[in-house]
Amino acid sequence: MTTLTISDLHVSYGGVKALRGVSMHVEQGEMVALIGSNGAGKSTLLNALSNVVKRKSGEIVFEGRETKGMSPHSVSRAGLLHVPEGRQVLGDMSVYENLQVGLIARGKRNTIYTLDHVYELFPVLEERRDQIAGTLSGGQQQMLAIGRALMGGPHLLLLDEPSLGLSPLITDQVFDALKKLNAEGLTVLLVEQNAHRALEATSRAYVLDRGQIAFEGASEELAGNQAVIDSYLGA
């Protein structure tokens, strides 16, 4: 079953065309990478998916439902949860309270992601449950941001640059957790600048370049395609 289908998506920001006819899809249970250089339009795509930015034209169908006109909170309540770039934890509130806010998106939907599940995945969150979120380290904040989204019972998890600013060791921990979640059945769309990490963790990948899909294919295959990596990712 297809979880997400994007067809011919156009988004403009104050006259600048950020996305120019993007089409892609994510199947249920997949972990898909979206990679591309800085400014390629990756974050814009995620923001368009959660309706934080309005699209100019095109279709976004999530679990069979066109999301056009839905408010951002309705999109997340439908199970499309977006962990934004820079974590955006609620800095004045405790770890526990952040996780409780995460529950709002779940509503009355059933989910396997309970508080215990999140604590099991990220034990540090349980240890620091009463700590004010703004005082956590970058890696802990990233774990909290993911945990908080899990509390909302995601059918599709959008992750924007989870490795940003993290040490390789902490990045490993975060990616291990993501792989584990995916193995449990969670559908994930992962945006990363760190192409090697992303391709290593996912099964399929899209390369976004100046607002258009420049390449798509199996991650493994892409990882071996030095020409593509050199020309689009500059890595």
Binding site: S50, V52, S71, P72, H73, S76, R77, L81, H82, P84, Q88, V89, L90, G91, D92, M93, V101, G102, I104, A105, R106, G107, R148, A149, G152
Partner: peptide, 11 residues
Amino acid sequence: TNERAAALLGV
């Protein structure tokens, strides 16, 4: 604290 982050969490 953060209206946009709150919206992404379903608030």
